[in-house]
Amino acid sequence: MTERPESLYEAVGGIEALRRLSTTFYEAVLADPVLAPVFAHFTPTHVDHVAVWLAEVFEGPARFTEELGGHQGLLRAHLGLAITEEQRLRWMELMGAAVDKELPNDALLRERVMEYFDWGTAIARDVSAAPVDEDLGDPGPTPRWRWDGHS
């Protein structure tokens, strides 16, 4: 058996693989009647921001924290969106299809990535119920996801 890369970031194929994943995913999202309303203010830079976020979460470069507001910035972007559980589950379904298409055919890798998305979308749904001006306090550093789960 070949040894796995140390980080999920390396295992997925780095930033370019995460950009492909984000592009494939958001193409489906923007065409989806359940999710398109959540992304009414979508811009093409969103794809890159998501890839940079995922890179950091999966133990790659910390560019989201350094350049885009870190964990606080990500959570604030979800305030006031009022994401429903139906939308969260549809998000997971479309992301699962994108993962199957764009990431290496490694069952454990895909499982860990989807575990992160399940965990993260639940937080996004919960935060989205708060008004845009909500004080989130300090959510701490950007979470990291590893082969053994959340750190």
Rank of each mutant, 00 (worst) to 15 (best):
R125A: 05
D32Y: 08
E93W: 00
R4S: 06
H41P: 10
P61I: 00
E67Y: 07
L54G: 01
F25E: 01
G60D: 13
F25L: 15
F58D: 01
D126E: 09
A82D: 08
W119V: 00
P131L: 08
F64Y: 13
R90C: 12
T23F: 08
A124I: 10
G73C: 03
A98G: 04
L21A: 04
P44L: 14
E102W: 02
L8P: 02
S151T: 04
L103R: 05
F117I: 06
L81N: 04
E86W: 13
T142K: 15
Y9N: 04
A77F: 09
L30I: 01
M92D: 06
A124G: 14
S22L: 07
A55W: 14
V34L: 13
P104I: 11
V113P: 00
T23W: 07
R125P: 00
V47K: 10
F25C: 08
T142A: 13
W91Y: 03
T45E: 10
F39P: 00
W53T: 02
L109G: 15
V113W: 03
D148F: 09
R146F: 13
T121C: 15
P5K: 15
A62I: 00
A97F: 14
A82F: 14
D118K: 06
E6T: 01
L18A: 07
A36R: 15
L81Q: 03
L89T: 01
L89S: 12
V127L: 06
V47R: 11
M95Q: 08
V34F: 12
R19S: 11
L79A: 09
H46N: 00
R4D: 05
E134W: 11
D32R: 06
V132M: 08
V38C: 09
E66D: 12
A98C: 10
F25T: 02
A97R: 12
T45C: 04
L79C: 09
L35K: 06
T142D: 13
E10N: 01
A122N: 12
V38S: 06
E27H: 06
A62Q: 08
G14F: 15
L54A: 01
H150F: 14
A40N: 11
F58C: 02
G13D: 12
D135N: 10
